[in-house]
């Protein structure tokens, strides 16, 4: 057991060293390095949604709202405090905590709702956050409102992004492989039964929602310090959808699936951009949508994991 943990830690360290070397030597170009960073940031956010939906079964169409709250909070803190490592760390913490707090405030009332209805409520919550971001300049001119926010110091280097992603995955895996995680999964499987087996379902659903929201907030905070321009449209409903797709395609209740799919998905989208001739760029959205439809019809239980038992459960009344 212990030996295995050391082996995994060693492998991750080796992977980091290799990637850092390839980046420093320019074998991985700045362009692809940026895509790699984005894929890791999306991974952190997707792991958050995996906790909420994949493991606890709480359907959310508003995950990007937490990502946005994290990005804007962190950007604001960083711009106010100015560049420097302590300010950056504080901004990351602030982004995660703010998103977690918002998740707590919104989660306490709406997590009583089930499946489709919860999806619609979270979608509505996402629209509300988007509208608030569009009007954020009224709160503070620093936030920029619909014009977007610029000038956040670009402090999120690969070492930060990589190790925070590893840390997020590690914490999520620990949570899942504990009594808390089992209780969360039991809620996904049968909420009434879980309640009757002594599981405080409200508390655990809220826990998953807050931890998942905070991870999205952390991802947003990193994003704000990696890409120089923040705009409300980066955090709207389509972005929530992206993350949801990653979690569903990765197979609900599979953390490995989530991580692999998140990275693969970001690279796939960029690859599409690279291979499509520029006059066909418009086709990207069409291809994206078609891939999505075909994948869902071909493998409704997700690409990875997803036993046949999984497809049979939560069977459609449709």
């Amino acid at each position: 057991m212990r030996a295995r943990s050391f082996a995994i830690a060693g492998a991750i360290l080796g992977l980091y060293g290799l990637l850092e070397l390839l980046r420093q030597t320019g074998i991985i170009s700045a362009y692809w390095a940026q895509i790699m960073d984005l894929s890791l940031i999306i991974t952190i956010s997707a792991v958050g949604l995996s906790l909420i939906y994949g493991f606890t079964g709480q359907f959310s169409l508003g995950h990007a709202a937490f990502y946005g709250v994290g990005a804007y909070t962190a950007g604001f803190v960083s711009k106010t405090l100015g560049a420097g490592a302590p300010g950056f760390v504080l901004a990351l913490v602030a982004g995660a905590v703010a998103a977690g707090l918002v998740a707590l405030l919104i989660g306490l009332p709406i997590l009583r709702l089930r499946s489709d209805y919860l999806g619609i409520a979270t979608l509505g919550f996402g629209v509300i956050i988007r509208v608030l971001l569009d009007n954020s300049h009224k709160l503070s001119p620093t936030l920029g409102g619909a014009k977007g926010m610029m000038g956040v110091p670009q402090l999120a280097s690969f070492v930060w992004i990589f190790w925070l992603a590893v840390g997020a995955i590690w914490l999520a895996a620990n949570l899942i492989r504990s009594s808390y995680g089992r209780a969360c999964i039991s809620i996904r499987e049968d909420e009434v039964a879980a309640d009757l087996m002594g599981v405080n379902t409200t508390a655990l659903k809220t826990l998953a929602f807050v931890v998942g929201g905070a991870l999205a907030g952390l991802a947003g905070a990193l994003y704000a310090h990696r890409y120089p321009f923040l705009h409300p449209s980066t955090f709207d409903y389509l972005k929530s959808l992206d993350v949801l797709l990653v979690v569903v395609l990765g197979g609900l209740g599979s953390l490995t699936g989530t991580v692999v799919t998140a990275i693969g998905w970001v690279f796939l989208l960029e690859w599409l951009r690279a291979v499509l001739p520029s006059e066909y760029m418009d086709l990207r959205g069409v291809v994206y949508a078609l891939v999505l439809i075909v994948l869902m019809i071909a493998r409704p239980q997700g690409l990875l994991g997803g036993s046949s038992a999984k497809g049979g459960k939560r069977r459609a009344t449709a």
Binding site: R182, I185, S186, A193
Partner: peptide, 19 residues
């Protein structure tokens, strides 16, 4: 029957010990 169908037999029992 309302078991947690996708969880293992062991985890069905362990989940009930959460409290």
């Amino acid at each position: 029957i309302r078991l947690y169908k996708e969880m293992s037999v062991l985890d069905n029992v362990r989940t009930a010990m959460h409290a």
